[in-house]
Design a protein around this nucleic acid. Sequence first.
DNA 1: CGCGACGTTGATTTGCCTCAACGATTGTGG
DNA 2: CCACAATCGTTGAGGCAAATCAACGTCGCG
Lengths: 193, 193
Amino acid sequence: MPYHLLRENINNYLPLSNKDLDTISDCFTLKEVSKKVFLLRGGKTCRFEGFVLEGCFRVFTLDQKGNEINLYFAVEGWWLMDIDSFMNQTPSDLYIQALEDSKVLLISKESKSKLYDSLPVVEKLFRIIFQKALVSWQRRLIRNHCLTAKERYFHFIEAYPNISTKLSNKHIASYLGISHEFLSKIKNSNKAT
Amino acid sequence: MPYHLLRENINNYLPLSNKDLDTISDCFTLKEVSKKVFLLRGGKTCRFEGFVLEGCFRVFTLDQKGNEINLYFAVEGWWLMDIDSFMNQTPSDLYIQALEDSKVLLISKESKSKLYDSLPVVEKLFRIIFQKALVSWQRRLIRNHCLTAKERYFHFIEAYPNISTKLSNKHIASYLGISHEFLSKIKNSNKAT
DNA sequence: CGCGACGTTGATTTGCCTCAACGATTGTGG
DNA sequence: CCACAATCGTTGAGGCAAATCAACGTCGCG
């Protein structure tokens, strides 16, 4: 059974028949991406949605001063896309880069559209996926308002131990919205006690 | 044609036949909510999704110290819900309160489920609605990282003039994640020049 | 080995918060 | 319709969390 991880992930959102899972899986193609290679660059239109099988990606954007802001990371079992650019086929604000040698399943805009049309339950599936994603983005924004940098850091490493251990401090700091110098101080402030 | 605003809003996301719009509209019931009255309180389960016809609501949560954090506002033409609580029928973290005498269309969990089953295009509709919402939450989080409080304030009043003019500074400050004292200083810092 | 990216640490600065006191405005009951 | 309370907005003083800048140590890689 190919793409077991994808099938399992989908079934977690919405239990589907093996036949439907086959149909969906068939629309994806495997791509291997070497460390530091970009899957998407700002200004380009995002032609795919991805599901990570192996490795690690970061999704980031640039602010006015040209600083990289890490939006999120995707390791095995995570979805990966520039929703806005993919949906509207407009130039992307986002960059997607492999942080390790990685394997990712990609589905093109065309295949996705066909899939939506031919298998209506896929609409429900992604309705649920986006709905859940929305909840977690709302929660993240609340945490950014309520918690200190230190609290956000510890929440992150506890909530995503499998992600945080793969990342450099620089990338974690950017994700949390703090400077990497300050993150370094946070981490070392606990060793004293 | 009742609920014209709702039909127009839906058509903006996904053009539908009048028949489908009728079917959808029929699932909603009008509710009038007086100023300061709560549509939902934290701890209760959210039994509805709402679409605002008139007036203004705020959606907020409480942090550990009991401070109110305004998550977002909804005026006419905006959707209003605790996605998480509605989807899973679990107790809500959120409070929804009318800031003016308001009119809102509500759809119950049961009606929504039936609607999803009976009219598959509704899955697509809400898939698109949630997808777009997700994009705007991602953008908002980026703005919170990149922009200063002052820049965020001016972005807000320019992006949502019809909302910001209805709100007290206290509520805007909470939405922006700053103290109302500091917002007052931001507003007055421009008069000097 | 030597270079460049990353991490650490300290000094200094700054954006924003907290607290407090005081006007302004709104709402409400007599 | 006014008086008074309550809420909201303004302003200033002081403090703190986190940024910035700079110097230096360390590690991985070509």
